[in-house]
Computed example of a mutant assay.
Amino acid sequence: MRKMRNLHLWIGLISSIFLLVEAVTGLLLSEPWLIGQAERGEMHRAAQERMNAFGAGQTSGTGASTAPMTPRAEEGGSSLMMFVRQLHEGRIGSLDIRWAVDVAAVAMIILTATGIFLSIRTLAAGRRRKQKRMTPAPETT
């Protein structure tokens, strides 16, 4: 049971670092104003303008098209994929739920950060207990 608990602790600690990075970067991509960038809509429009200025349908020297690819869900792909994409963008149909996505990201950041902190404290307490057991008790005479 102890090995299982240690395995769970270490896998959780290592994977939580990746989860923390994903939550923070996702929140920053969703709300670029947090780092002083333009709003998400403005960034999207600027990227579209750059792609249009570059020329849709142009070919490079190798003959490959440089036109932006359209997502499959918008070409009549599965409705599940379209639903997943909308959730990722913070909307369900015409309903804007970006605030809920942001709240979930902040909650994940808090839970992950406190989980890492508590895991490190658990590891440190275990190390202290082990050192205490290894240290011989002083003899009283």
Rank of each mutant, 00 (worst) to 15 (best):
M1T: 13
M4T: 09
M4S: 08
N6I: 14
N6S: 11
L7F: 14
H8C: 10
I11T: 15
L13M: 15
L13Y: 08
I14E: 03
I14G: 13
S15C: 10
S16G: 09
I17N: 03
I17M: 11
F18P: 10
F18Y: 07
L19C: 15
L19W: 12
L19M: 15
E22N: 06
A23E: 04
V24R: 01
T25I: 03
G26P: 04
L28Q: 03
L28S: 02
L29R: 05
L29K: 02
L29N: 05
P32V: 01
L34Y: 07
Q37H: 07
Q37R: 13
A38Q: 15
G41S: 11
G41N: 10
G41C: 00
G41I: 00
M43D: 01
M43A: 03
H44A: 09
H44F: 06
A46M: 04
A47P: 00
Q48E: 10
E49L: 09
E49S: 05
R50Y: 03
M51E: 13
M51I: 08
N52D: 05
T59H: 05
S60M: 14
S60A: 15
S60P: 00
G61P: 00
A64S: 08
A67R: 12
A67Y: 02
T70W: 04
P71V: 02
A73E: 12
A73P: 01
E74N: 02
E75M: 15
E75N: 12
G76W: 08
G77M: 05
G77H: 06
G77Y: 04
S78E: 09
S78H: 05
S78D: 08
S79H: 08
S79K: 13
L80T: 03
M81T: 05
M81E: 12
M81L: 05
M82V: 06
F83A: 12
F83K: 09
F83I: 01
R85V: 06
Q86L: 05
E89P: 00
E89K: 13
E89F: 11
R91P: 01
R91E: 15
R91K: 15
R91F: 07
I92R: 03
G93P: 04
L95N: 02
L95T: 06
I97K: 04
A100C: 08
A100S: 11
A100E: 06
V103Y: 05
V103I: 14
V103C: 02
A104I: 05
A104F: 11
A107D: 09
M108V: 05
I110L: 13
L111S: 06
L111I: 07
A113F: 14
A113L: 12
A113P: 00
G115M: 00
I116Q: 00
I116W: 00
F117W: 11
F117L: 08
F117T: 06
L118R: 14
L123S: 11
L123H: 07
A125M: 09
R127F: 07
R128V: 10
R129H: 13
Q131S: 03
K132R: 09
K132Q: 06
R133S: 08
R133P: 00
R133K: 11
M134N: 11
P138F: 07
